[in-house]
Design a protein around this nucleic acid. Structure first.
Length: 287
DNA sequence: AAGTCTCTCAACCGCGCTGGT
DNA sequence: GACCAGCGCGGTTGAGAGACT
């Protein structure tokens, strides 16, 4: 944990570039570091009364000497009543693995599929447990493929599934799952608006210069994850959510063969291809 | 008991996106 | 279209706790 402190001139953000100061964190007199129970109570009480949002002005209104960012983080990662504390269960771990293979390091997206867990939880758990576990099993945690020491560049071809499917109407040839490619490359159709083309020559989605997190389909997916799943097929968001669910739980990924038998059992969706086509048709209509 | 090492995870930082003007 | 404020995300840090010597 970081030492409680008060921000003064010359914090790291201001040192690195005076022209690029994050305003809410550059104010003098703001407290940093671990939150006290009193601060937690102030923040919780305020949000219970007034609701979330307007983080920028929240600290002042709530009587806190914190920046809005810090308040948001504390609420999202620790104080929200819906949060689940304690160890990650085996079924959650299995889900994280599946989702990470699909989405890569999109922790917020992954967390959106796991009730009560935050992106920070997932990220920490991945970095401290799962990546090591996969390595010990001879699996590259980044690519989810067997580690190949002979060919250190073999992983460069890997891309998580979502961007190929969502941002390109042509499926990338480097897709790791031919079955997915086959089932989702339906007539080479546009699935969603092409606001964010996958940059030519980009070989690694973890490349920080290419950020697809806010691609329409994924933000839509996130919103869908936030509680609209009951109204399936009403919006594009719901379709993505449904589609993702079917991907996660379908045997098309052959997960059992890689990670061993899962600790949870999902009913296999019969007619997966038909379902995919139906969903994609619907998405086309929505957009 | 004391010192050192390792692990965990809360918190911070910087960047990119969105929406308003 | 340009600019700006606010928000959300992924990567990283480092204090504290526990394990080990």
């Amino acid at each position: 944990m970081r030492n409680p402190s008060v921000v003064s001139k010359g914090t790291s953000s201001s040192v690195s570039g005076a022209s690029k100061i994050t305003p809410c964190c550059s104010k003098q007199g703001l407290k940093r570091g671990p939150w006290t129970p009193e601060e937690d109570e102030l923040l919780s009480d305020y949000i219970r009364r007034e609701g979330e949002g307007r983080w920028r002005t929240l600290p002042k209104r709530a009587g806190l000497l914190r920046c809005g960012k810090s308040c948001r983080l504390r609420w999202m990662n620790y104080l929200r009543p819906s949060l689940k504390r304690g160890q990650i269960a085996p079924d959650e771990e299995d889900l994280i693995l599946r989702l990470h293979r699909l989405l890569g390091n999109r922790w917020a997206l992954i967390a959106g599929r796991i009730p009560g867990r935050t992106d920070n939880d997932i990220k920490n758990y991945w970095n401290t447990h799962l990546s090591k576990k996969l390595i010990s099993q001879g699996i590259d945690p980044r690519t989810h493929k067997p580690l190949n020491t002979d060919n250190p560049n073999s992983s460069s071809c890997f891309r998580p599934l979502a961007p190929q499917f969502i941002s390109n109407n042509t499926i990338n040839p480097c897709l790791s799952s031919p079955a997915v490619e086959e089932s989702c490359n339906v007539g080479n159709e546009d699935v969603v608006k092409k606001d964010h083309e996958y940059p030519a020559g980009t070989t690694d989605l973890n490349d920080q210069h290419y950020n697809w997190q806010n691609f329409n389909g994924l933000t839509a997916l996130q919103r869908a994850n936030e509680g609209n799943e009951h109204s399936a097929y009403c919006t594009g968001e719901d379709v993505f959510s449904s589609l993702l669910n079917s991907w996660i739980y379908d045997e098309v990924f052959g997960y059992n063969s890689v990670y061993g038998a899962g600790s949870i059992s999902y009913s296999q969706s019969s007619g997966h291809d038909d379902e995919c086509k139906r969903l994609i048709d619907h998405v086309n209509k929505c957009f």
